[in-house]
Write a protein that binds this DNA or RNA. Structure first.
Length: 422
RNA sequence: GGGGAGAUAGCCAAGUGGCCAACGGCAACAGACUGUAAAUCUGUCCUCUUCGGAGUUCGCAGGUUCGAAUCCUGCUCUCCCCA
């Protein structure tokens, strides 16, 4: 199975410039994808692009990952409804460094693959030089006709953002010329920018270049992929803990899971067919979600982080009991609850405590007020150390402490807090 | 410039002197059920509370009244029609 066929059955193919498939089947191609340094870490929306590069490498082609040190200074207006806030150069540098480090985890940059930053070729390119060398080849009429900027022509777009497609287009030209990159990959929203690049290559050098885009990952219920109530799901474990990351995938709907397992894992078609059939026989077992979560958490965070994420999940949601919790070594406990809010309290608070409400509402942010705490407890929403606690007038005791230090507080099903007394 | 309509809790929206912390819907949160799902049902949903209550709200500032989201005066803002 070749690269394009692979993408096709996985649902990873949105559009190609005619001739792209032929090119890829007759020679080994260098292809690039750009990553925007809008934050210090990539989030799972970028995972599709990363996986695309990995597939490319697996099929013997040469991936080039471009980090947009220069384009990040401009801001991509594609399908955005408003002008973007500019990032400071300092932030940008930090973001570029963070993203480069992450990309190295997924792509082996020793085997011909390359990591580039377009700031390299833009930093010494003068404004007048750019105007004369690049701008002259593309008409404003052509640029305005793009769907990606149409909306903005009504509401307003700065010259800076409008020129973005030329900058990105020049990237493609530069990589085509210096790195023999004949193909640019990207999300479907990048089609307009990519095609400006192929056009620029044709007009500046009479060369031929190609484009391949992947579809936007969507959710069956229409909400935006990659977001939770807590915000973006990041690849950086410090921003989204491996536990939260694993949970995100585990909570995928049945319908989406069938789609995502093809996109986000490297499992073979046969394996996936079996998994889907098994899942449909017994959806409650959630074999798809579990496998999806295992595969991608391993890819992003590694096997040992996955194991503790699974251990934490089982303890928190599954059969976890007070006894099991109490039996955990302290180090394991802390590891499992790494992603859970931690509060340090003075031990005397617990020794002198007369009222559970007072402890949780006044001394910790678990509850906003005593009234709220009382209502929640009356509704049976509070658990301490995995056991329901329903006595609003109860007194907390030092015997509750796990490892002599901790109390695990649970508000509702999913909100955990770890109180540490010392 | 002239005429008209409106501003109520996170959002939509009812209420036109006391029965109003304010109908109803959405969102949110919790419980039951379940698969850590969906759907459904139940509860909570201005703030605090010793659960008895207490305090602060209906664009803003005054006023009338025993009593105002509701009546009066002024101001601010939004929308519509005509020029």
């Amino acid at each position: 199975m070749n690269f394009v066929e692979e993408l096709r059955w996985r649902g990873l193919l949105h559009d190609m410039i005619p001739g792209t498939e032929e090119l890829l089947s007759k020679e080994k191609v260098a292809a690039y994808i750009g990553f925007d340094p809008t934050a210090e870490s990539l989030h799972i929306g970028s995972m599709v692009q990363i996986i695309l590069l990995m597939h490319l490498q697996r099929h013997g082609h040469t991936p080039i990952a471009l980090v947009g040190g220069a384009t990040g200074m401009i801001g991509d207006p594609s399908f955005k409804s408003e002008e973007r806030k500019m990032l400071s150069e300092e932030t940008l540098q930090k973001n570029v460094a963070g993203i480069e480090a992450q990309l190295r985890r997924f792509i082996d940059f020793d085997k011909g693959a390359q990591l580039v930053n377009n700031y390299e070729w833009f930093k010494d390119f003068s404004f007048l030089g750019f105007m004369r060398e690049v701008g002259k080849h593309i008409s404003v009429n052509y640029m305005m006709a793009k769907d990606s900027v149409k909306k903005r022509l009504e509401t307003g777009i700065s010259f800076t953002e409008f020129s973005y497609q030329l900058i990105q287009g020049y990237d493609f030209y530069w990589l085509w010329k210096h790195k023999n990159a004949k193909l640019q990959l990207g999300g479907s929203d990048q089609w307009g920018n990519i095609v400006t690049g192929t056009e620029l290559i044709r007009r500046m050098a009479g060369g031929e270049a190609f484009a391949l885009t992947v579809p936007l990952v969507t959710k069956a219920d229409g909400s935006k992929f990659g977001k939770t109530e807590q915000g973006n799901v990041w690849l950086d474990g410090r921003l989204t803990s491996p536990y939260q990351f694993y949970q995100f995938w585990l909570n995928t709907s049945d319908e989406d899971a069938e789609k995502y397992i093809k996109i986000f894992t490297f499992l073979s078609k046969d394996e996936i067919d079996v998994l889907i059939a098994t899942h449909q026989e017994n959806p409650a077992a959630r074999v798809l979600q579990k496998r999806l979560g295992e595969e991608i958490t391993t890819l992003v965070h590694g096997k040992s982080e996955l194991d503790s994420a699974i251990a934490a999940s089982q303890l928190l949601f599954g059969s976890g009991t007070t006894e099991q919790l109490a039996a955990l070594p302290e180090a394991t406990l802390l590891q499992i609850f790494e992603g859970v809010p931690h509060y340090m309290l003075d031990k005397s608070l617990l020794e002198n405590a007369t009222n559970i409400l007072d402890l949780l509402a006044v001394h910790t942010p678990v509850f906003e007020s005593k009234g709220e705490a009382r209502k929640m407890i009356q509704q049976n929403a509070l658990s301490l150390n995995k056991a329901k606690y329903s006595d609003a007038a109860g007194t907390p005791r030092t015997e509750m402490l796990i490892s002599g230090k901790y109390i695990l507080v649970q508000k509702g099903k999913k909100n955990y807090y770890l109180l540490q007394f010392s």
